[in-house]
């Protein structure tokens, strides 16, 4: 994590239990503003569960998810005040603070501006590519239509807002190369295009934090390379912070600024790519060395 950057998301002592099963065990990490943070780990480590907690689809069993949507780092007192007050969010001079664990999923997307994609693509398959992108801009369009009433009566401000939404959709269609297929049903697109569309749709909500669940899954090397460039451009041109779950190490190591490694719901490593790449615990987790043999393996690996 580059020094000096205010943390966007502070995951503190996150715990998630399903009955007797502990899926996430006291997990803490930070995602800095403007960075690409990756969560990696073997299958079943709890990565998607972390996502679901952050984006509000699961209610965490414990812990705090502090989302800082302001320019400055909030003081510890400010944070304590919010935590004890029982409120979901608070306004600070620089912006807003959110406690994501208290917010429902749609509110996290709408107010805190945390967007996500899904491991199994969830597009609106029966709607066209364009419609998918327009639906993403629902809240702003709803407001412009006067909660439908003005729109029903034909007020001009809605027409203007719709034109703006179309422009934004067109922009993203160009960016992901789907302009030609704007009027095709989303379900007809090839797999790689569907993935790109899902990301474009998430970007139409103008998120501060974009959570991507295995964006490179099922992509061939050329598509993965394109994805890498695309994600980097999101970071550079749109000042969006990224949080991604990924198995494809070439993608992760190349573009991440910060990596968090999970195994069995616990964090086993945290740091820049170089650090994580060489961390013996990480190697052991991926190669499957027994706990007792970890020390031996470490001894072998270290110079």
């Amino acid at each position: 994590m580059r020094a000096g950057l205010a943390p966007l998301l502070n995951v503190e002592h996150l715990t998630m239990r399903f009955g007797g099963l502990i899926a996430i065990d006291d997990l803490s990490f930070s995602a800095a503003r403007g960075e690409i943070t990756a969560i990696i780990g073997p299958n079943g480590a709890g990565k998607t569960t972390v996502f679901n907690c952050i984006t509000g689809f699961y209610k965490p069993s414990g812990g705090r998810l502090l989302f800082n949507a302001s320019d400055a780092t909030p003081s510890p007192d400010r944070i304590d005040l919010l935590t004890t007050s029982g409120a979901r969010h608070a306004a600070t001079p620089g912006g807003e603070l959110f406690l994501l664990e208290r917010m429902p999923d749609y509110e996290i997307a709408a107010r805190a501006k945390v967007a996500r994609t899904f491991q199994n693509i969830r597009l609106f398959a029966g709607m066209t590519v364009l419609e998918n992108l327009i639906v993403a801009q629902h809240n702003r369009l709803m407001q412009a239509s006067g909660w439908t009433v003005l729109g029903l009566l034909g007020a001009p401000q809605y027409a203007a807002a719709e034109r703006q939404a179309l422009d934004k959709a067109k922009y993203w269609l160009d960016k992901v190369g789907l302009s030609e297929r704007a009027d095709d049903p989303a379900g007809d697109l090839p797999y790689g295009a569907q993935r790109r569309l899902e990301i474009a749709r998430a970007m139409c909500t103008e998120p501060r934090l974009l959570c991507l669940d295995e964006p490179a899954a099922g992509l061939n090397p050329r598509e993965s390379a394109e994805l890498k460039d695309f994600l980097k451009s999101l970071q550079a041109e749109h000042a969006t912070s990224l949080l991604l779950i990924e198995h494809d190490m070439s993608v992760v190591m190349d573009i991440s600024d910060h990596i968090v490694v999970l195994e069995y719901g616990q964090k086993i490593s945290d740091g820049p790519p170089d650090h994580v790449r060489n961390d013996p615990k990480v190697i052991a987790a991926y190669l499957g060395v027994e706990d007792e043999e970890v020390e031996e393996a470490e001894a072998e690996i270290s110079p």
Binding site: Y106, A110, M127, T148, L152
Partner: peptide, 26 residues
């Protein structure tokens, strides 16, 4: 209504409710 946001939201709801929620739709 179909051409207004609410109608589109209805059809999107029919397609995939969880995706709708992830886009901030109540």
């Amino acid at each position: 209504l179909r051409r207004l946001p609410i109608g589109r939201a209805w059809e999107a709801l029919r397609e995939d409710e969880i995706a709708c929620r992830s886009l901030g739709i109540n």
